[in-house]
Design a protein around this nucleic acid. Sequence first.
DNA 1: GAATCTTTTAGTTCATTTTACCATAACAAT
DNA 2: ATTGTTATGGTAAAATGAACTAAAAGATTC
Lengths: 250, 250
Amino acid sequence: MNKKRSSSTEDILGHQFGAFYKIPIEKFFQFALSVDCVILGYHENGLKLLMIERGTEPHKGKKALPGDLVYPTEDMELAADRVLKDLTGLEDVYMTQSKSYGQVDRHPIGRVVTVGYYSLISVDRYQPLASSWASNVVWVDVKELPQLSFDHNQIVDQVLTTLRERVRLQPIGFELLPKKFTLGQLQELYEAILNTTFDKANFRKKILGMNLLNDTKELQTQVSHRPAKLFSFDKDKYESLLKKGFSFEM
Amino acid sequence: MNKKRSSSTEDILGHQFGAFYKIPIEKFFQFALSVDCVILGYHENGLKLLMIERGTEPHKGKKALPGDLVYPTEDMELAADRVLKDLTGLEDVYMTQSKSYGQVDRHPIGRVVTVGYYSLISVDRYQPLASSWASNVVWVDVKELPQLSFDHNQIVDQVLTTLRERVRLQPIGFELLPKKFTLGQLQELYEAILNTTFDKANFRKKILGMNLLNDTKELQTQVSHRPAKLFSFDKDKYESLLKKGFSFEM
DNA sequence: GAATCTTTTAGTTCATTTTACCATAACAAT
DNA sequence: ATTGTTATGGTAAAATGAACTAAAAGATTC
């Protein structure tokens, strides 16, 4: 990171147009980078968002996305993983980069550009960590989002828009459910995300017709009515269908 | 930009978890930010990409995306607009942010994080600028992409994947055509982007059935056969259909 | 001006998918 | 055994999509 820098931007960066820089190249290395994580989970029939309550200014008292500065020698995906793990203890979960936000005045401390990430977690895997900041962590329903710190509302809105598009074309909904789930749960999940309703019988036919699910031969328990079968998503089946030209669509 | 910085990251940034920083906050402000633009145009039956040929090391001789460093007091969207305008003279064109790329070692000069943008331009509006670097500018067919500088292949691949998804769900294909176009041209465009073919009669029925196009009452000229009608995309119609629950799908 | 060529445009049929229901089976609880 | 609730299987109508045929329109050529 501390390589010697030439003062000729053109020679080194090779950006061959734009104004010739009238300020030394060092002046360009004044940005900080952060990551902000939109951590989504599904429970109690709703899509929920993991947020922290800020105990310090600015924006004290408001809710904010969990995030952190990226270290100068750290890859940003790693920083996002770190934030997620510190908060939830979880690793190896679905995580995707969303957009980046860099308004000049978005942060009082200086030029901080933040990269949004979103991850989908299964709440049955999530155990709130008993660390110092765990008390400030809350699940918020995406339908009841309050005003958030900084530009975090914008980040969340973008993620939700992307998610709604993506969940229709990629089999990622399963990431939000336990390994074994009923078709009813899956349907409710899609209905919550897409804010719509499906015909139960047709939903079942459609999803089973894709041949992506394994019948675990187990049944739902502790329900006061006929228990539903438990299914699991078969990633291998999906991969092999993909090669044959299959495309998921909900 | 030169506000006084506290050495307590927690107090100022309010990132309430992660390691307590063992290095001073100044050390985090070592990043530079750049934008790289994937400028897409459609001509000669193919989707083309505007690239520059690097005249300097590193990656001398290779093709690269047009891009530039973002000034410390410049919004990144503005930087992307600036790059586009300097290269093509065009303003007010379709431009969308793609992903960001920040591998620690992606640039020899230091920690440069780049934000990808893609824009769709109508080549009939494009006039190559007669400036010093214009000689290095070339259109490259997306089907014949060579090895590019830095991580630019990755950026382009990402943009093309996104575009193919997006062009099916949003009426953005029109951005790549002249204001007035024939249905044949529109079909060829979709076929080029999605790498498929459509039945001509059915394509026509589908797109006209959406009621998004205006018949300009003009005809194609300078063709040696029956000229096709010229249509234009009616954005107002689209907006009002959207409100009624219409959703574009190709 | 007639014949020819190419492409646009309209229309028809058939297969497939989607949608909306209905009926029954299965299990838990009482 | 009865009741309640949900899962599950099936069917008919409606809408959509794919494949194809044929005619019409204008430019070009002779």
